[in-house]
Design a binder for these strands. Sequence first.
RNA 1: GGGGCGAUGGCGGAAUUGGUAGACGCGUUGGUCUUAGGAACCAAUAUGGCAACAUGUGAAGGUUCGAGUCCUUUUCGCCCUACCA
Length: 849
Amino acid sequence: MERYNFKLIEKRWQERWENNKSFSTKIDKNKKKFYCLEMFPYPSGKIHMGHVRNYTIGDVLARYKSLQNFNVLHPMGWDSFGMPAENAARQNNLDPKSWTEKNIATMKNQLKKLGLSIDWDKEISTCSPEYYKHQQEFFLELYDKGLVYRKENYVNWDPVDQTVLANEQVIDGKGWRSGAPVERKKLNQWFFNITNFSNELLEGLGELSDWPNKVKIMQQNWIGKSFGCEVSFNIQSEKNIKNIKCYTTRPDTLFGMSFLALSIDHPIAKHYENDPNFKEFKQKCSRTGTTEESIAIAEKIGFKTDLVAINPLDENIKVPVYFANFVLMDYGLGAVFGCPAHDQRDLDFARKYNLKVTTVVKPENEDFDEINDKAYVGGGVLINSKFLNNLKVPSESIKKTIDYLEDNNLGKRKTNFRLKDWGISRQRYWGCPIPIAYDENNNPVKIPKSLLPVKLPEIKKLDSTGNPLEKIDEWKNIEIEGKKYTRETDTLDTFVDSSWYFLRFCSSKNKDYGFDFDEANYWMPVDQYIGGVEHAILHLLYSRFFMHALSFKNSKFNIREPFKGLFTQGMVCHETYKDKNNNWINPDEVVTINGKKFLKKDENQEVEVGPSESMSKSKKNTIDPEDIIENYGADSVRLFILSDSPPEKDVQWSDEGIKSSFKFIQKLWVLNQKILEEIKADHPEKNVNELKKLKSKFINNVQNNIENFSYNKIVANFHETYSALNKIISTKIDKKSWIENYRDILITMIPVIPHFSFECLENLKIEDIEKNLYWPKINKNVLVENEINFVIQINGKTRGLLKVKKDVSEKELLTKIKETEKISHYIKDKKIKKTIFIENRLINIIIEN
RNA sequence: GGGGCGAUGGCGGAAUUGGUAGACGCGUUGGUCUUAGGAACCAAUAUGGCAACAUGUGAAGGUUCGAGUCCUUUUCGCCCUACCA
């Protein structure tokens, strides 16, 4: 018997799909659509196992929906702008464009080998002018809608590389490449007014019932809506400062106030600019690291001003005003009042500077301890608060205090959002140019639509410092209608590229606009979006914003939520290995002996096995998908990457696992040959019902498991069905029944192992099978069992199973139990107090002991 | 500090509304066939016990005829977020 030659067979089917354009899709309003999208990859060089998992999960769904006669859009593209291309270009002395294009060619070829049902005709690449032209149009559209603006903002500046760093490029306050201490520098930058939609973006989450709760909560926290009020504090000062406004969610603790703290970036700071002590303090603040941990641990420090703030509720309470390192300018108003008794930070600060601690909340009906080092943040009632005393905290206190403040013109109710506007300027070459130019007075003007796209100038190599666009004068200096301008040299954040690519897929060749309204209205929203949870906040929020922004003041387009369903898959992990010199080593350098001893290949040196971690180049625990496809075939890879772990959890890649999947496909092939022989034999005897039932169960299970994303259980269904078929094969079933039922089983396997399934289907020699493929419908009645393994419990303990006919009565069952020695001895001579009888399932007999 | 998720054999994981705990796979053990086995096939595999049986889903309580599943308390682990006023 021939072994299953996956190399030949997979190649043949992939070619056939490509030549027949099997997955190319057109808009068809008579058919229900299904838009299945996986997050498009960054063309970093080669695909990795994470891609394999992501695209396999998506492909199972796409192929399943397509068999169910949905009109399926399943496209693929490239998120091809970004820093790695610049880094690679600098390192290897080439230009980002050719590096990127080469990677795309490689990865496309690799993806094709996975046998994905992708409509490659719709392929897009965000770095192509055909794509970013429309992005520039969108920029101008949002500009006209007032959703784009320019303001000064701080950036991380690397003084050696003369470049702006992203937050993740700042490591311990130093530039990741140069190692130089990073400076804060103010630059004029472009912003999308995402906060214009804060409320809509928050409310919209409520409609997203097919999103993981986790992600919705993350976005909710990110948007961070809070209710409170602005309070105005009068200031006593020799300077011209009359009052300071603070935002607070706890105005009810105002009587406990003992200081007021300002951010060092607060406008009032300009009064102290020339004070050397203040300068020193500012420097001290900027010295604390930027890592999350160092911020959290950082000591609270303050700079005492000569200002005195007066409590709006009691003018006899006068407190000092500080600048403090823990107050942020970009949240609220950059100023807070400190109530040490009921806020830990304020307490730490107060203890350090010997400020008063006045308790104003005490737990209800309880004694309370003096505040020492721990602030009391719970509820209770107000004390030491004059006319607010005895109000319940927080149910009455906050509302009543705000009412009082508003009535007396001391403050006003305010909703605040944590969400900040989206800074989209990047001082980089390899991104979408911003279609703006500046006149001689540095006023921005739009580049007219007729001059779009603003193409990136081609360069041969990148210098190591600065933004190359600044240095190309012939690109930078332009004339519009005879007037001289200088181009904006910043490019757009690459998150902009990915904020609308799913729209572009709907009509990827459309020339007049980023998408065709008719097509977009047909395909959108994406029915199922699949990708890593690491994009749970930014990418998904920006995409949602972009839809809101495009829908804003637009009569032709009104789709505010781009992704109806979201699925976040887990990572692919592998064991880590280290040699005796403590260097990471790649799995393919490791050989095992009896699965116990791990040795470094060719060196006979023992290897230390570490815990399984997500595959990463730094730990060298990666497995190259191309090697695996080469050795085991795409179907084996697909099967294995789905088995073992549920898709939302991390999966452990193992050599044994992929081998086992490979063997399983071989076994399926052997079974297929046997079935073909049975068909040839065409036994006159029939055993249809059992086969039909087996098939129906299989289809039913697989269907449920696909719908619930329990893809690991599908693999289990495959194994069970394989065993069942192997058993049933000896029972002499006639040709017609075999073909009918086995055909349906094979179709059901298409989403997971398409090459194998199609090959076997072809072997069945059913006419026009390819054109008449549909997800088999099953008769649910077939699934009903006529005999039931009835669970017999005595006093709640399972004592046995009885095979009885369906719908057996309690009385009949009890009779049968008494006849069954194995079980009856438990109740012999005992008085039955009570029985619980669950139809067709279980009986619990309660007896006296 | 805030928020979320989770804890089931040696391992990854199954277990509809509370109703046979451990599906399926890996690994391990025994066997068959083989010059060989790192191939294939068959069987066993939660723990203790010869067995009957007992015990078992991180821990402790509770609700229930019945709890992996529901409630309370608690321990541990992972993830996100972070001086958010």
